[in-house]
Amino acid sequence: MKEMTAKEVEVALKKGKKLNLIDVREVDEIAAGKIPGVTNIPLHLIEFRMNELDKSKEYIMVCRSGGRSGQATMFLKNQGFNVINMTGGMLAWEGSVE
């Protein structure tokens, strides 16, 4: 499984890189703070909403600590998607939140 640290994601965003971020936390967790521009697809809905994703794009999966995003990364990878897990999740995120 491909991985990036929260710091690597933050640096890429600060450099203006366009990243496709998907946060797999529940809606109430997102309300406490999310990375600006992230798309929320709770983990239990990934299977049902993967038709919204484009297999030609790269996606970075985010959650609270990296566990659920790791599960989502493996699932989507097995479905033919190009995905990266953000290790450490929002607990490791030091960038801005909305």
Rank of each mutant, 00 (worst) to 15 (best):
M1F: 00
K2N: 12
K2D: 05
K2V: 07
K2S: 06
K2R: 11
M4R: 13
M4Y: 08
T5E: 13
T5G: 14
T5I: 10
A6M: 12
E8M: 13
E8N: 13
E8C: 12
E10T: 11
V11G: 02
A12E: 00
K15R: 04
K15H: 02
G16C: 07
G16N: 04
K18D: 13
K18R: 11
L19G: 09
L19F: 11
N20W: 07
L21F: 01
I22P: 06
I22Y: 13
D23P: 00
D23Y: 03
D23L: 04
V24P: 02
E26M: 08
E26H: 03
D28W: 02
D28S: 06
I30A: 03
I30M: 08
A31E: 10
A31Q: 11
G33M: 07
G33E: 06
G33I: 03
G33N: 10
I35N: 12
P36N: 02
P36G: 01
G37M: 04
V38P: 10
T39P: 01
T39K: 12
I41G: 14
P42K: 09
H44K: 10
H44M: 15
H44C: 04
H44Y: 09
L45E: 15
I46W: 15
I46N: 13
F48M: 15
F48G: 15
M50Y: 05
M50P: 09
N51S: 14
E52Y: 13
E52A: 15
L53V: 11
L53T: 08
D54R: 10
D54A: 05
K55E: 09
S56D: 10
S56K: 11
S56I: 03
S56Q: 11
K57Q: 03
I60M: 00
M61A: 02
V62L: 12
V62F: 00
V62N: 06
R64Y: 06
R64H: 13
S65E: 03
G67R: 06
G67A: 05
R68P: 06
S69T: 03
S69G: 10
S69F: 06
G70A: 10
G70M: 08
Q71K: 14
Q71C: 05
A72V: 02
T73F: 00
T73M: 00
M74H: 08
M74S: 11
F75Q: 03
L76C: 06
K77V: 04
N78K: 00
N78P: 00
N78D: 02
Q79S: 04
Q79I: 02
Q79P: 02
Q79D: 01
G80D: 01
G80M: 03
G80T: 02
F81M: 03
F81R: 07
F81V: 02
F81Y: 14
V83K: 04
V83Q: 01
I84C: 12
I84G: 05
N85S: 14
N85Y: 07
N85I: 10
G88P: 06
G89Q: 10
G89I: 14
M90I: 15
M90Q: 11
M90H: 06
M90A: 08
L91C: 07
L91D: 13
A92N: 15
W93K: 02
E98W: 04
E98D: 15
